[in-house]
Nucleic acid binder design. Structure first.
Lengths: 344, 344
DNA sequence: CCTATCGATTAGAACGTTCATATGATAGAC
DNA sequence: GTCTATCATATGAACGTTCTAATCGATAGG
């Protein structure tokens, strides 16, 4: 750590390093960017001086010359839904980006139009090299815009309405998650297993429903009268799950599309004097903090966000530096965090 | 929106705008940065051309020349404690930064040493203009390092161990929050009100305890045997609150230093066959998603994070552009979100 | 009418890096 | 011994902006 105040001390540049090492600026540049071009002894000498002066290349100058900022743009959502999924994802993105010499530029936008305007602004200003797209939806205009403007990006989430997407994506297999939840409930001896999800039309919501349906079919279980839908929210989950518990052939297990719906379902179970876990098993999705805080603690599908972010950063960086051109699609399996809400 | 692919089309520069408008580059620069220097008709002409070509200044070139990146660095925490406080804060930072032409560079660091190394790296690379410091603690080495290296920064959180800090900070008055919680419980008719907090030594934890103590004293309530401490966590809160409920003169209200502890306390209440809200009132801190999801929903102290972020960005930007030199200290009052856990 | 002052605009350099190309040295082939 | 190929390093230009200082024209004062 240098003892000098960097604002008062004259900053070291590639020129001062070159002078001190008795080589040209280009040789210093090569020492950093293409060390194999230097004779070992020259390399060692330059590296010593770099270390002594604690030199770091000026990012703006590098960026101006190479037209690359080594920044990945990512919108941070205005509506925090409380699951913390995107925050975990953002953190993992930062870690992985850092390992590759990149950083993450976080920006806010209150809707998709504003987000696209921010894309355009950041691109034209040469402020970012690429974007990470999150919260993809059906008919998402953002991917279309980025594609038509030749911008580099990778989405976290599949483009649900495109058969053969021309851009890379990384996603978690939500259907596998709800299937695993059904499998787990079957192991616990349940035979009537319901699905509590969101209104039809959302890509990930329909995917989670499909996973339930596939598993229930594979286990040859009943599936009529066992699907209910509600907007995300505790109150909605409570109402809809309650109605289902009151029906003639009530389920003994409820697989939910979110932790919030699952907490609502748990409330409905308790209100009716039933024992959650013992009488009625409930599972959630995302393994958010409220899953661990619920009473009883909630079994939940956990997304491998760290792996997803690592993959996404890797693909983005390779797209940016040209090492990868073809669209890449990666689907990761989630895991099930088992807690008392589904155990007898 | 331009119909052209920005990667294929030749990008417009300040030079192409100048040519098209029949003025010099500097005049275009002035049109953007000091419009008052231009004759109104010249300004209008240049602005028209800028709009036609949809010109945006290259950020790297600007940054190189002015030595300012218009980026605010902020570490995103590796350990997400699940409250979502810092995520709400980050989002609010992004929004306010954007309004002032700044953006937020998010970076990861797994401990304070690594965080300081990241500061040094970003500063020497001229990658950021300033930092927002979060999660301040007693004996925090980060502020000292930044001060001694002449870096601009504002901390979210007071430096608890410094009498007259030489840097600006913005914070939320945690003591006022726990005081408000006590006042509220008194209004609900409670007389024995306990405090459930963290082990002594953390700045914000001690502050929250002080607020409880002040309010309890002001109301002339008992305070012996009414303070318990535990590491943050549901299990810890449950154990410690349970022990307190079992004691001879048990409290009827429990003010907690976090939502997690409060959820634990609620469990202890329910386990003993007592009615939360009716028999024993519980309050949390941070109004995190688990407060709304708890059963019964948890009364909690809510921090004005949006205001805090707006203030912090304003102070940072003024420090950076020299409009403010003296350290500024802003303490914001929190509010109490009242829910069933504290109501009869 | 000459000069001083002021406002609007321009010219050229500078920021610190990397790119494309040139140079010099060394070694191998004939 | 010269010619070529190859490797290591150096040279000068370029990236796109803003800074400093200069220029030009108009207005006012003597």
């Amino acid at each position: 750590m240098p003892g000098r105040d960097p604002l008062l001390a004259p900053r070291s540049t590639i020129g001062s390093v070159a002078e001190a090492a008795g080589v040209s600026r280009q040789t210093v540049s090569n020492a950093l960017n293409a060390p194999e071009r230097l004779r070992p002894e020259t390399l060692a000498r330059v590296q010593t001086v770099i270390a002594q002066l604690d030199y770091r290349p000026n990012e703006a100058a590098r960026s101006l010359r190479t037209r690359s900022s080594r920044l990945i743009g990512m919108r941070v959502s205005p509506v925090s839904n409380g699951t913390g999924v995107l925050d975990r994802f953002l953190h993992a993105m930062c870690e992985n980006a850092r390992e590759r010499g990149y950083a993450v530029l976080a920006f806010a936008a209150s809707n998709q139009d504003e987000e696209i305007a921010a894309y355009e602004d950041l691109l034209r200003r040469n402020a970012v090299d690429a974007f990470a797209l999150t919260e993809t939806s059906r008919g998402d205009p953002r991917a279309r815009w980025l594609l038509s403007h030749g911008a580099e990006f990778v989405s976290f989430g599949r483009p649900w309405d495109v058969y053969r997407p021309r851009h890379s994506w990384v996603d978690v297999d939500g259907a596998a998650g709800t299937s695993a939840a059904v499998d787990h409930l079957v192991e616990q001896g349940h035979r009537r297993i319901a699905f509590l999800g969101w209104p039809e039309g959302s890509g990930s919501g329909d995917d989670r429903h499909a996973g339930w349906l596939a598993a229930v079919t594979a286990h040859r279980l009943a599936r009529t009268d066992l699907v209910r839908r509600s907007e995300d929210g505790i109150a909605g989950g409570e109402a809809v799950a309650g109605a289902m518990l009151d029906q003639r052939r009530a389920p003994t297990g409820i697989v939910c599309a979110s932790d919030t719906l699952a907490v609502g379902a748990l409330r409905a179970v308790v209100e009716r004097g039933l024992k959650p876990g013992l009488d009625i098993a409930v599972t959630g999705f995302d393994d958010s903090p409220i899953a661990a805080a619920a009473s009883p603690a909630l079994t939940s599908v956990r997304q491998p966000l760290e792996t997803a972010a690592a993959t996404l950063v890797e693909v983005i960086v390779e797209h940016v530096n040209g090492a990868r051109t073809a669209p890449t699609h990666v689907l990761l399996p989630p895991s099930l965090t088992v807690r008392p809400s589904s155990q007898r």
